[in-house]
Structure formats: C-alpha cells, structure tokens
Design a protein around this nucleic acid. Structure first.
Length: 208
DNA sequence: CCATCCGTAAACAATA
DNA sequence: GTATTGTTTACGGATG
C-alpha cells in the first residue's frame, strides 16, 4: 500500500463509512464562525465581530460532528439522542473512541484514515483526565495505530504542529492534575466547552 | 482557477 | 550539552 505517500486518492475511498466524507467537514467549518464556535458555541455564533477570524483553520467543530455522526450513532440521523454532543461527553465517549480505534485496527499496517487532529482528539478523549502530555499522545497513537511505529519520525512533528495550530487544543501547565511526569499537558477545553460546557474542565485550565 | 484543508519538513526558541 | 517540547513558516497535494 502506498499510504505513506500521504494523501493518496484512496484516502477518500478508504473512509467511506468511517469518516464519511471529509468534504462535509470543510463545509461545516466554513459555515460556522470559527472563533465563536470555540469561544461561545452554539450560542449564536453571530458575534464573530470580536474575533480576528484567524481561527478558521483551527476550529475543530467539525470534528465533533464527524466523530459523533460516524462513530457513535452510525449516521447523521442519530436522533436517538437529543444531541450527539451528549455522547461525546457521556459514557459513550469511550466507545466512540474505541470504535474509531477499532476501525483503525482494521488496517493496522496502513495509514489511518484519520487526520492528526482527529488522532490527537481521540487520544485526549480517551484519557481519564481529558488531557495528555505530548509523549502520551505519541504513545496512544503508536498503540492504536502501529502504522506509525514504522513510519518516519516526521509524524511526531505533525502532531506537535497540530497541537500548536489547532486552538482546540490547549496547553496547560503540568501539576494541575494527575499528570506528573509530563512537561506539558494538552487539554481540549475549547472543544468540550463548545459542546458540552465542561465547567470542571474550565477549572482545570489555568487562566494565564 | 481559486480557496481551503491537510500533511510534511524545517528552523528556531524554550524548557527539563 | 542534549533531548524534548512548542511555535512558526513554507510548500505541495487533494478537494470542492
């Protein structure tokens, strides 16, 4: 397989049921006022006058929809729950990620049909504290996607690149939670706040 | 053709 | 001094 090439045409064909269509993601992201999505989400996202708009590239709202629609309920119709957002925070959270990981396991040797943002998100979501040191993110990815164990080391750079670029990931000082050996922790605060309003998480995040 | 998204590489600074 | 981590920039491919 020539997955190493990166974005091979198979990418799309390979993730018909998994990621559905990435095209939708872009659509979502493009329609939503990015900054607001992150800051104050559902709320009316009409006040993006305050934001500079540089977050369009960093918004991962689509990620939720995508994840939830494809992994949780098996489809956009997902009407069983009032809001798919609940699943991600609720008990289903783990299963969502597990499902994703399971999908990944199908083709252990091939490049996972997930973007780095998604991989990072899954790793963080699976952690008990919803936060992970970079090192552990590496570890999670390696554990669930052995493909990277044999892949060039550049993927780690990509992970860090995504962590920095995507404002959905927030860096917090260590020592705030259970993370002890890590230097820094990446926390998905905006993401969770956007859809689930996690007061607890907010408390964990050091307001610098 | 253009805009956007994603992956990758690289350079550099900060920190442990 | 070294390794790791974090940030930033740039480029090219893929897609709508």
């Amino acid at each position: 397989m020539g997955p190493i090439i990166g974005m091979s045409p198979d990418k799309k064909a390979e993730s018909p049921g998994v990621l559905g269509d990435l095209t939708g993601l872009r659509g979502v992201c493009g329609t939503l006022p990015e900054a607001e999505c992150a800051a104050s989400p559902l709320a009316t996202s009409l006040d993006h006058s305050s934001s500079s708009g540089d977050e369009e590239l960093t918004n991962l709202n689509w990620l939720h929809e995508n994840l939830l629609q494809n992994f949780t309920l098996g489809g956009p119709e997902a009407q069983s729950s009032p809001s798919p957002l609940f699943d991600i925070e609720g008990n289903h959270s783990a299963s969502i990620i597990s499902s994703a990981a399971a999908h990944a396991g199908e083709s252990v040797k091939s490049k996972p049909p997930f973007s780095f943002s998604l991989l990072i998100y899954m790793a963080i979501e699976q952690s008990p504290s919803k936060s992970l040191p970079v090192k552990d993110i590496y570890g999670w990815i390696l554990e669930h996607f052995p493909y990277f164990s044999s892949a060039p080391t550049g993927w780690k750079n990509s992970v860090r690149h995504n962590l920095s670029l995507n404002k959905c990931f927030r860096k917090v000082e260590r020592g705030l939670g259970k993370v002890s050996s890590a230097k820094l922790v990446i926390l998905l605060s905006r993401l969770t706040n956007t859809f689930m309003s996690y007061p607890e998480v907010e408390g964990v995040v050091p307001s610098k």
